[in-house]
């Protein structure tokens, strides 16, 4: 693969890293009950009903946040080749948020005995809508431009919804249950980082990374 500027391809191999936590203050909204009457097979898969938590996490931390470096990092980064799996299981999507590199495959898998369709609605990238009528079906697609969160959903089961962000570099990650994160292989420098959450606005923070060391940054959301 050639690069536009003729610069050599660099793997993300800086010696530093960025760590921290994404936190929230305030009372999260009640989880929403999901009504699965449209598809009896989804009801069977969720005998006790299902719900969706918009704000989720432990110990004040916020999970399902994608944290990324916003500052331009020197070098050109070849697309990661390992596909990210979006699984459809029990008529729910896992994971709830997906970070992808430009050109990195998104592997969509149907693990249910029912029909799903995967319908991302990007603005910058080209959208698609693939139907997967049978269990075990897999489809791979790629996005070719960086873009902040856009929804991906199933039109058959409107409650199925995840969010995808696409980056032109590999410096991004998803927060764990407790809101903690770690972006490895960061070259030394001063960075602005960005946090994206499906329903909250984008927040930024600043951090300095020294060679071989971790730059630490926390970002706190205040819920209204």
């Amino acid at each position: 693969m050639a690069t536009a500027a003729g610069a050599p391809m660099v793997q993300a191999q800086g010696s530093g890293k960025i760590t921290g936590r994404i936190l929230f203050k305030g009372v999260p909204p009640e989880p929403m009950k999901i009504r699965m009457a449209a598809d009896p097979r989804c009801q069977q898969a969720n005998p006790n009903g299902a719900e969706r938590r918009q704000i989720d996490g432990k110990n004040g931390g916020l999970t399902n946040v994608i944290v990324s470096i916003k500052t331009k990092v020197k070098g050109t980064f070849p697309p990661l080749t390992t596909p990210v799996v979006l699984d459809q299981s029990g008529c729910m999507y896992t994971p709830a948020v997906i970070g992808l590199m430009v050109g990195q495959p998104l592997k969509m898998r149907n693990s249910d005995e029912t029909l799903h369709n995967i319908h991302p609605r990007p603005v910058v990238n080209e959208g698609f809508n693939v139907g997967q009528p049978r269990k075990g079906m897999e489809t791979e697609k790629k996005f070719d431009k960086p873009e902040t969160f856009f929804p991906v959903s199933c039109d058959v089961h409107p409650w199925m919804r995840s969010y995808i962000a696409v980056f032109d570099h590999p410096f991004f990650t998803t927060t764990k249950e407790d809101g903690s994160f770690e972006i490895p292989n960061v070259p030394p420098g001063e960075y602005e980082i960005e946090a994206q959450h499906p329903t909250l606005k984008i927040m930024t923070g600043k951090v300095v990374v020294k060679a071989g060391a971790a730059g630490v940054v926390d970002i706190t959301y205040t819920l209204k």
């Binding site: 319908h119 809508n129 693939v130 139907g131 009528p133």
Partner: peptide
């Protein structure tokens, strides 16, 4: 090919080679 290929709504999925 899905709805949009024929100017129909994008809610109609493309089943590709599923069948």
């Amino acid at each position: 090919n899905g709805g949009p290929k024929h100017g129909l709504a994008d809610v109609m999925p493309a089943f590709g080679e599923a069948f």
